[in-house]
Amino acid sequence: MFQFKLVLLGDSSVGKSSIVHRFVKDSFDDFRESTIGAAFLSQTIKIRDTSSDSTEDTVIKFEIWDTAGQERYKSLAPMYYRNANAALVVYDITQQDSLSKAQNWVNELKNKVGDEDLIICLLGNKLDLCDSSDNGDKRAVMTDEAKVYAEEQDLLFYEVSAKTGQGVKDVFQSIGEKLYQIKKEEMLSKKGRQAASAKDSVNVKLQRPSTNDPTSCCY
């Protein structure tokens, strides 16, 4: 089993928690409280390795950080995206402003993480509000606009709806496959001790603080 860390970032009320809820529970709440701090949860998916002959599915476990979009929690963000394997940067396609916030997040990730292997996925949510057959099309961000930006920055790009579920599963599926590919190449290159190292390389507890500073506590 492979384990990957995934973080959701984006402006508040773009629907990060709803996307996670759709992915994990396959359901949707119309009334969802704003996230305070961040929520941690995990979910497994199965992927089929198309290149190999094996017919067995590979299980991938996502450890997901669903962060609060509120400005005041911004200083905590590095803790969540540090060591992440993938970042979902979410915006609301009915809010132009949320795309520029998303772009800020992309820049921050590129500057601060500096990991070539970090997969960044730009995700436009609330596709259900943009049904063109309906009069109430509330789209504010054109698909092309975001798509061009995503291509420039070399990001994955999807438009989804957490409410209807449209596209949500696919996003996680394709991220899973991509991470799996990267991991497999990595393993092949270190063929000798692949099993052990592959396991360690994903499970190692990277969050241990570099200095265990006992003075920061209260007694």
Binding site: K25, I36, S42
Partner: peptide
């Protein structure tokens, strides 16, 4: 924190 997923854990300042 009422509408939580069962296996959800929180980290709240």
């Amino acid at each position: 924190f009422q509408n939580l997923n069962e296996n959800q854990e929180l980290w709240v300042p």
